[in-house]
């Protein structure tokens, strides 16, 4: 992680920030014992300016910019969350039918002293990891593993936490061959049928059916700069506009940001990110996420099993009816 901090990836629209920070690091190299005060104050000034620019940029991100932030390679991924707030994490693997899919990770653990089942898409954070996790694009096995874990959770009365971060289910010959559509449908079906609490946080990209499959929950929360969409802006641009370059327009038109979805009643909570996005302060955003999950589970803990299912059904049936 330290290595990642030192080589920060800047997004296109962050250029002014990149330049300022570059300047700061150059100036810092000049500092030695007999540094003049003026140099220090110059650095302070620049840092202030960086903060100001970051703040301005990140409070007025366009939907397309948010898409880029949501996909930022240094953004914390599912395993970062699991490693920091799940104790006794015991990963579970395999769908018992065909294979284990690492695009969806999950297992047992303790969340604030309570046994839980945690399931999430993992994108991986370096080349090796990304290949291992197939960039967070799950195969049918991944969804079937999710179903297996959710049913196990229900059997043992464990609340379920899901962390959503996927561009979508993997589109490939083998995935189709083994019933990608059916696997997704069954997983959504399973989420809806559960009689234990299920809480979802969309931590990065919520890509279409591949996300819905584990995001059909009692409480659906989103990070401030996460997106949740029926199709990627690029996909929509090329299908509807017939021009892949219209992705910015598509991102805006489809209303994919947490703020828009909150207004439409699709999600319950927006979890604030630190200035400059989750990737600038992982601990901060993970702490905030933990608190939000804790609160959501707390709200659900006294509900009866059938009530949990009914509440989930009602919530989804109501969706869009009041627009």
């Amino acid at each position: 992680m330290d290595r990642a901090e030192t080589v920060r990836t800047y997004l296109n629209f962050e250029k002014p920030i990149a330049e300022l920070e570059h300047k700061i690091s150059e100036l810092k190299l000049l500092i030695d014992d007999n540094t003049e005060d003026s140099l220090n104050s110059e650095i302070d000034k620049l840092e202030e300016k960086v903060n100001k620019t970051l703040n301005e940029t990140y409070t007025s991100l366009t939907p397309w910019q948010k898409t880029l932030v949501a996909r930022h390679p240094q953004r914390p991924h599912a395993m970062d969350y699991i490693n920091s707030f799940i104790e006794d994490y015991s990963p579970l693997a395999g769908d018992r039918l065909y294979a284990n899919d690492d695009a969806i990770v999950g297992g047992l653990g303790t969340f604030e002293g309570q046994s839980v089942m945690i399931i999430g898409h993992e994108k991986g954070s370096d080349t090796e990891g990304r290949i291992k996790h197939n960039f967070g694009m799950a195969m049918p096995e991944g969804y079937r593993k999710a179903v297996r874990l959710m049913e196990m959770a229900e059997k043992f009365s464990l609340p379920i936490i899901t962390l959503v971060d996927t561009a979508g289910a993997y589109p490939g010959i083998d995935a189709e061959e083994r019933g990608q559509a059916e696997a997704i449908a069954r997983s959504t079906d399973c989420c809806l049928n559960l009689r234990v609490p299920i809480v979802t946080v969309i931590i990065g990209e919520g890509g279409s059916g591949g996300a819905v499959a584990i995001a059909t929950a009692n409480k659906i929360m989103m990070l401030e700069h996460a997106i949740y969409s029926v199709i990627s802006p690029e996909g929509a641009a090329s299908i509807i506009w017939r021009d892949a370059e219209k992705k910015e327009e598509a991102a805006t038109a489809m209303k994919i940001t947490a703020q828009d979805l909150m207004k439409m009643g699709i999600i319950d909570t927006i979890i604030p990110e630190p200035i400059g996005g989750a990737h600038r302060d992982k601990d901060h955003v993970i702490r905030a996420t933990k608190e939000a999950i804790s609160q959501a589970l707390d709200e659900l803990k006294d509900k009866k099993p059938d009530e949990l299912r009914k509440l989930r059904h009602d919530r989804f049936l109501e969706m869009g009816r009041t627009l």
Binding site: D189, L192, N193, G209, V230, I240, M319, G320
Partner: peptide, 22 residues
């Protein structure tokens, strides 16, 4: 597939219709 012109609301028809299947 989903009607993209309705964005997330079309996506939400996946769980919604699944409830009716249940």
């Amino acid at each position: 597939g989903a009607r993209m012109q309705e964005g997330i609301l079309s996506l939400m028809q996946m769980p919604r219709t699944t409830i009716a299947v249940q």
